[in-house]
Write a protein that binds this DNA or RNA. Structure first.
Length: 218
DNA sequence: AACCAGGAGACAT
DNA sequence: ATGTCTCATGGT
């Protein structure tokens, strides 16, 4: 089964996901940091806190105290770690001249620049590249590993870069890759949250098993 | 009441 | 290069 075929099945079953849920590229970046190992519903609460206090803004986040920021980030957990990471990111972001300035960089350079920021790892960097800077980068996360492991297409212990290039190569000839990568990653997350338990020929997991085994506890 | 959530860094081996 | 630990709230 090809990468694209699995995408088609996911799309047929779940429909368009309209990611990333945010009102601006900067909000995408903030959300990308806050959602590290954290459910999105908790991130929504923290972002609402930032909006309510009028600090969903690069300069405002830099200016405020660590203590106050950490308090607003309470719902996401790891609030001390994430307050530090957000501040590091914002300082870098402002220093680099903001969105338009960074957007002039080619994808590879922008990616290494992001990875050099404390608190931005491969997945967060790729979330930002794909959903904020609209670059053709395939995001790998734990769901992606588990799904394709259960599909028997990978071992599951491959390195991040290995998997990313595996997906990007597998989808290299597809048209509208930006939209494809955007939707594909969102669909994988959707499929993890809403596993299909019935026999469904359009479900990439059900197709191989009786009942959707993906994300089934024990 | 354990378990997981749209990970990353520090540190030891 | 490859494991293990920590960070921490909120929903199931």
């Amino acid at each position: 089964m090809t990468h694209y075929r699995i995408y088609q099945k996911l799309f047929a079953h779940h429909g368009p996901q309209n990611w990333w849920p945010a009102d601006s590229p900067f909000e995408v970046m903030v959300g990308a940091v806050l959602t590290q190992n954290t459910s999105w519903t908790n991130v929504e609460k923290a972002i609402a806190n930032l909006v309510d206090n009028q600090v969903l803004d690069c300069e405002a986040l830099i200016a405020m105290s660590h203590k106050r920021l950490a308090k607003l980030l309470t719902p996401v957990g790891y609030f001390n770690v994430k307050a530090t990471r957000l501040k590091h990111f914002c300082a870098w972001y402002a220093e680099q001249g903001g969105y338009n300035s960074l957007n002039t960089l080619p994808t590879n350079e922008l990616r290494s620049a992001l990875l050099a920021v404390h608190g931005i790892g491969p997945e967060t960097a790729d979330d930002i590249l794909l959903y904020a800077f609209e670059r053709e980068v395939f995001v790998i996360d734990a769901y992606t590993r588990r799904l394709f492991q259960r599909l028997g297409m990978i071992d599951g212990d491959e390195g991040y870069e290995t998997l990313r290039s595996w997906f990007e190569q597998g989808l290299r000839r597809c048209k509208d890759r930006l939209e494809l990568f955007n939707e594909y990653h969102a669909l994988i997350v959707r499929h993890a949250k809403h596993p299909c338990r019935a026999r469904n020929p359009d479900c990439p997991t059900c197709q191989l098993r009786e009942g959707c085994a993906f994300e089934q506890r024990r």
